[in-house]
């Protein structure tokens, strides 16, 4: 028979694992693409294998050098960036970065980007063959060069097409990352669900700009950039709430999460897991603190698992 203490202890350690398709994450806290490098740059602060997953910087088939500087501008409680999808390319990632992540048992999600449907598909096929890659996250906020540079993610048909192409060749879960720069986020979410996505993650950055009044020119080399950080949290939360109520697949919440309280709001809104982005840039320990705070909150308030947090209406 179990002692009272043992029973108490069992009750006091809530189940925080989550499932995205066949992939089980040990906890719901992931690092967002573009804010954690390739997962190894700050392992001296947070052990990447202690997190639910690490979503590495968006990869293209060939390396990309990115946008001219300045690439960053600060806004009230926010960050505007126009990195321009700089990355080392798929081959270099597989050869130089992935072995390190595998050795340390990190759950790796690879964020992918392309300028054509074919590019997305070729990357997805290569990743599916690579052991050590646990899921693909498709960044559909990229301009489609064959459609006059309109982002795949802002067009229902294109969003569904990219998803279908990637799903066709993938043997691992496919998470489609939604752009918030659309009029109807639910319509896009449903389109990618119908096209076979395992899950959706949202939101990517909001399009914005800053003007440098002293030099009388846009602050970013690229003129426009993507807004992230605490400033976008209410918008992200609203969209997660909406999408969680219009699709049946898991929803991963992203946008301005810096504390456990922020993450709990997303989990209550209907997210199965969360990603920490800009907060890591400000405080490399943010993800660890969010995770510990979630466990504390569940324990203190006698939640047995994450699903119990969800607001059902």
């Amino acid at each position: 028979m179990k002692s009272e203490k043992e029973i108490k202890q069992a009750c006091s350690s809530p189940d925080i694992s989550v499932k995205i398709g066949d992939l089980e994450l040990k906890n719901p806290v992931m690092l967002a693409s573009g804010t954690c490098g390739y997962g190894l740059e700050f392992a001296d602060f947070v052990d990447p294998s202690s997190l639910g997953a690490v979503v590495v910087k968006g990869l293209s088939l060939e390396p990309r050098e990115g946008n001219p500087p300045p690439r960053l501008a600060e806004t009230p409680c926010g960050l505007l960036n126009a990195i321009g999808l700089e990355n080392i390319g798929l081959d270099a990632f597989l050869k130089q970065k992935l072995p390190w992540l595998m050795e340390r048992n990190v759950t790796v999600v690879v964020n992918i980007l392309g300028s054509t449907l074919e590019e997305y598909q070729r990357i997805a096929a290569r990743l599916s063959e690579s052991s050590g890659v646990h899921a693909i996250e498709v960044n559909i906020s990229c301009p489609n060069v064959k459609k006059g540079g309109v982002a795949f993610g802002t067009d229902l048909v294109q969003a569904a097409n990219v998803t279908r192409k990637v799903v066709e060749v993938s043997s691992i879960p496919v998470i489609v990352k939604l752009s918030p720069n659309v009029t109807d986020i639910c319509a896009i979410a449903k389109a990618v669900e119908d096209a076979g996505a395992t899950a959706v993650s949202l939101i990517n950055t909001l399009l914005g700009m800053v003007i440098d009044i002293h030099n009388r020119r846009p602050a970013l080399g690229n003129v426009f950039g993507g807004l992230s950080g605490p400033a976008i949290k209410p918008i992200a939360l609203r969209m997660v709430w909406q999408v969680a109520r219009c699709v049946g697949i898991p929803v991963i919440g992203i946008g301005g999460i810096a504390t456990a309280e922020d993450a709990l709001e997303f989990l209550m809104a209907g997210a199965l897991a969360v990603q920490i982005g800009t907060a890591t840039l400000v405080d490399p320990l943010a993800s660890k603190n969010v995770l510990n705070g979630i466990v504390d909150f569940l324990t203190k308030n006698n939640y047995r698992n994450l699903v119990e947090l969800r607001i059902s209406s």
């Binding site: 804010t35 490098g37 740059e41 690439r71 960053l72 960050l79 960036n81 990195i83 840039l281």
Partner: peptide, 9 residues
């Protein structure tokens, strides 16, 4: 932004 090589900014 980060000073740690994370953001490429």
């Amino acid at each position: 932004a980060c000073g740690l090589g994370l953001c490429l900014g």
